[in-house]
Amino acid sequence: MTEVISSVEPTLTDINSRPQVSAYTGISVQTLARWAGEGKGPKFVKAGGRVLYRKRDVLAWIDSLEEAS
């Protein structure tokens, strides 16, 4: 029996947790947390103690990196 391994690209939903953003960007959860404390990285919101990222904010942040290079 052959095992099929799927490589699925991570995607973002409209609202994302820090681990979801980490999987999408390849940036560790710890780095995202540190950047949030330093005012760096993508914009986020806090809801009920959870840190959440809007898809549009993550993509805008990624676009801003390209422009800054």
Rank of each mutant, 00 (worst) to 15 (best):
K40G: 01
A36Y: 04
R56I: 11
G49C: 10
S22I: 01
A60E: 08
R18S: 10
R34K: 15
S7K: 11
V29W: 04
S28K: 10
I62L: 14
V45D: 14
S28A: 13
G37Y: 06
F44N: 07
A23W: 00
V58L: 07
D63S: 08
S17D: 07
S69T: 15
L59R: 05
S28I: 12
A68D: 13
Y24S: 07
V51A: 15
R56F: 09
K40V: 04
D14A: 15
P10N: 06
G49E: 10
V4R: 14
V51T: 14
E66G: 11
D57Q: 13
P19T: 06
V51C: 08
V21G: 06
T13M: 04
T13E: 08
A23E: 14
P42W: 09
G37F: 04
V21S: 12
S17C: 05
A47S: 14
K55T: 13
T11L: 12
W61E: 04
S7H: 07
S6W: 15
L32M: 06
R18N: 12
K55I: 11
S17L: 05
G39W: 02
A60L: 08
S28H: 00
T13R: 13
I62V: 13
T31D: 03
K46M: 07
P19L: 02
R54V: 00
Q30F: 02
P10M: 12
S22V: 00
K55F: 00
T2F: 07
G26L: 01
A68N: 14
V45A: 11
E38P: 00
G37P: 03
